[in-house]
């Protein structure tokens, strides 16, 4: 009975205040979309880092089937060439610059490739043979990359030496800046949303002051009087958060999945499913914001 009563109160509150409720939905929608966009950029950075990025800095790719580099005259790197490189890496002259290194065989490379590009159609057309084996080196000081490069580039069986950080770092710094901007915009919009929710609740409390006055007098509990107002704000904010989550999913599905992944087939993009891990966070954030701001408002404007 009491639940039914509270629900009907919420319904009438939402109907009476429709334009304000719609504006709360839109403002939370926009602000949480920016929050989500920042989250999505971070997810994308993680995706692009792949398996090795956080573990090593320098990769020495060995010659594969179709390698045309000078050191690859003999075709695919032989086990002896691999052993020579390993010995060289372990020699004191080189070892002083590196923490450790790992060997990535063609099969390992294929496994990591499949993980990173799991959302991309390219994964089906690649076989382990096409991927080069490599030594992955964790440097003591990433700035000493040149020394490794000079030492190994000319070794037989080495196709190329790559400083992965140099390739991706600039892109990541742009993306990090973009997510910072998104967070700042989101912050401003969230302040906006909080104030708007507070105003909406105030209006709602004012337009129903007759009812709440009588409820007080006949001894309705604080919960029965306040809960409809709080839930009104929470419902509006949760709808906004759901819209934001849907928008992020749509961006991942249509923009990244359908368009960007065809334009840049060699880049790993996040899947639409991955954006859904942001949804609970957005819904929770929206509900919390609305709950807190309506509680604070009611404390001032709805005496019980």
């Amino acid at each position: 009975m009491r639940l039914a009563f509270i629900l009907s109160e919420i319904g009438s509150g939402l109907r009476r205040n429709l334009s304000m409720v719609v504006s709360v939905i839109l403002v939370t929608f926009v602000s949480l979309t920016f929050v989500g966009a920042a989250g999505m950029l971070q997810l994308q950075i993680n995706q692009m880092k792949g398996y090795w990025y956080d573990k090593v800095q320098v990769a020495i790719f060995l010659c594969g089937d179709g390698s045309t580099a000078a050191g690859c005259a003999t075709g695919t790197a032989t086990p002896e060439q691999q052993e020579n490189l390993r010995t060289l890496l372990e020699s004191p002259a080189v070892a002083q610059y590196i923490n450790d290194f790992q060997f990535e065989s063609k099969d390992d490379a294929y496994k990591h490739f499949k993980e990173q590009f799991s959302n991309s159609p390219i994964v089906d057309s690649v076989t382990p043979d096409q991927l080069p084996a490599s030594f992955r080196i964790n440097m003591k000081d990433p700035e000493k990359y040149q020394i490794i490069s000079e030492t190994f580039s000319s070794q037989p069986g080495v196709e190329t030496v790559i400083d992965q950080r140099q390739v991706l770092e600039r892109l990541f710094s742009v993306m990090n800046a973009a997510s910072l901007v998104a967070v700042i915009i989101a912050g401003v919009m969230i302040v906006c949303a909080i104030l708007l929710i507070a105003t909406t609740i105030r209006l709602s409390a004012f337009s129903r002051r007759r009812e709440t006055g009588i409820m007080r007098l006949v001894g309705a509990s604080k919960t029965v009087i306040q809960l409809p107002f709080i839930l009104e704000g929470v419902i509006a904010a949760v709808i906004g958060a759901a819209l934001a989550s849907g928008t992020l999913w749509a961006v991942a599905h249509f923009f990244l999945g359908e368009y960007m992944s065809k334009q840049y087939p060699d880049t790993a993009f996040i899947s639409p499913a991955q954006t859904l891990i942001l949804a609970p966070a957005l819904l929770g954030l929206g509900a919390t914001l609305a709950g807190i701001s309506s509680l604070l408002t009611l404390r001032r404007y709805l005496r019980v």
Partner: peptide
Amino acid sequence: GIGVVFQDFRLLPQKNVFANVAFAMQVIG
């Protein structure tokens, strides 16, 4: 445990007589 009556009645204009009286019972469950 206390009923209150005012000079200005304070009825809910959009509810009929029955609903106005029932309101006092609904809100306490």
